[in-house]
Design a protein around this nucleic acid. Structure first.
Length: 116
DNA sequence: TTGTTGACCTCTT
DNA sequence: CAAGAGGCCAACA
């Protein structure tokens, strides 16, 4: 068996699913998603998925995904460098100096919330 | 086909 | 305390 199409859902689709499940006003990190998917060391892959998330539908709230430090590292990849910050603010998330305020409070861990 | 890149994370010096 | 390098997996040229 060529083992092709072993999984209808690819790593990316899995990431999109988790990101879309992020409640409004909450944020998560790449590592948390990667870990939830089983690839803890593949945090970079999550970011890569986000890059393609713009062409994925429904649209994925990539603005809710930030790095471990809560920094909006990917804001530069949005339509506008300030788009990510604007979207987060629109959700009630306070952003200061490209960093999410009370990131630990707003942090939404899929492996924790979805595991219940 | 191989090699490089990439919105990261963690350890070591 | 701060900075640097390595590691992980997948897509792109």
């Amino acid at each position: 068996m060529t083992a092709v199409r072993k999984e209808s859902f690819s790593f990316f689709d899995n990431v999109y699913a988790v990101v879309r499940l992020i409640p409004r006003g909450r944020v998560t990190s790449y590592g948390a998603i990667a870990e939830y998917l089983g690839s803890k060391g593949s945090a970079r892959m999550v970011g890569w998925a986000m890059n393609a998330s713009f062409q994925v539908k429904p649209k994925v709230p990539a603005q809710r995904v930030v790095n471990r430090q809560g920094l909006l590292t990917g804001k530069h990849h949005f339509a506008t460098p300030t788009r990510m910050e604007e979207l987060l603010r629109a959700e009630g998330i306070r952003v200061k100096d490209n960093q999410v305020v009370d990131f630990e409070k707003k942090f939404w861990d899929p492996a924790k919330e979805l595991e219940l």
